[in-house]
């Protein structure tokens, strides 16, 4: 009965228009299942047996990607409840706790972000310990390092959004470093030499920190700027680089193994 129903579905025009291969039961259809699916074709068709052993890969890269997807889903949902202005930000977060049914969104988003920072480090550790950055994978290691930096920046820009004391002061400490950028920060070396007729060109009102915060302190402009970077700009860049990263894994011969 159930089998008959299953067959009826699989033989329908709708099913056939979506999945162009038969049930993945033999070698050919199983290969087709990977090749003809835009998401699954991130994988090669076949992999080394040792390359998918959990003790070899630790699954950390995959978990990092999974957490990135969790962050996108919960992040989009959070955007419905949150307004990035000094008047509303903090109270919207409070409201999330008080008024939203099953309000785990922020917990999932925050702990997911912490976990993602940890798993991406562990992924890098595994790739290093197995020497998987060696030729032909040098370039993909570099892409991975950029992704690591972007993950930290994603977490850093998100840190400000709850607009509580922890957020504001952590970003104050973090962004103060930009003030010391050589030649581009008002309190950095070389900056004092950049001047026209005694008027300094690099000062607190236009230096690197100002560019980051859109102001001389962590205020409403910084909140908006971090919000846009956090929700739009950095996720887009990460998505593009992830595509490169995954594509290169396949092109460089899949999960590494002894040559």
């Amino acid at each position: 009965m159930i089998n008959q129903f299953g067959n009826w579905i699989r033989e329908s025009q709708i099913w056939g228009s979506i999945f162009r291969h038969g049930v993945p039961r033999d070698r050919r259809t199983r290969a087709m299942a990977i090749l003809s699916n835009v998401f699954l074709h991130l994988h090669p068709v076949a992999v080394r047996k040792s390359g998918i052993r959990l003790s070899f890969t630790w699954c950390m890269g995959g978990i990092t990607f999974f957490l990135f997807l969790v962050e996108i889903v919960t992040g989009v949902l959070l955007m419905f409840y949150y307004r990035p202005t000094v008047e509303y930000a903090y109270f919207d977060i409070q409201g999330l706790r008080a008024h939203v049914t099953l309000g785990l969104l922020r917990e999932l988003h925050r702990w997911g972000a912490h976990a993602m920072v940890i798993t991406i480090w562990l992924h890098m550790l595994r790739v290093f310990l197995t020497g998987s950055y060696k030729p032909p994978r040098e370039f993909n290691w570099s892409v991975g390092v950029i992704l690591l930096v972007l993950t930290l920046l994603l977490s850093f820009t998100g840190y400000l959004l709850p607009w509580d004391q922890l957020a504001m002061w952590a970003i104050t400490v973090g962004s103060n470093m930009a003030r010391a950028t050589p030649g581009a920060g008002s309190e950095g070396p070389l900056s004092a030499f950049i001047q026209i007729g005694g008027v300094p060109l690099v000062h607190a009102g236009d230096d690197a920190r100002f560019g980051l915060l859109a102001g001389t302190f962590v205020g409403p402009n910084a909140l908006l700027r971090f919000y846009v970077l956090h929700c739009v700009f950095i996720p887009c860049v990460v998505t593009v680089l992830l595509a490169v990263h995954f594509w290169r894994i396949r092109k460089d011969g899949g999960v590494s193994g002894p040559l």
Binding site: P24, R27, R30, R48, L259
Partner: peptide, 26 residues
């Protein structure tokens, strides 16, 4: 430990299923 580089297994079902399990567990 990683020897036997030539024994390949198909991604469907060996890898996609372990990915599914990892996804559910996480």
């Amino acid at each position: 430990l990683e020897a036997g580089a030539d024994d390949k297994v198909l991604v469907w079902p060996d890898l996609v299923y372990s990915e599914l399990i990892a996804l559910v567990l996480c």
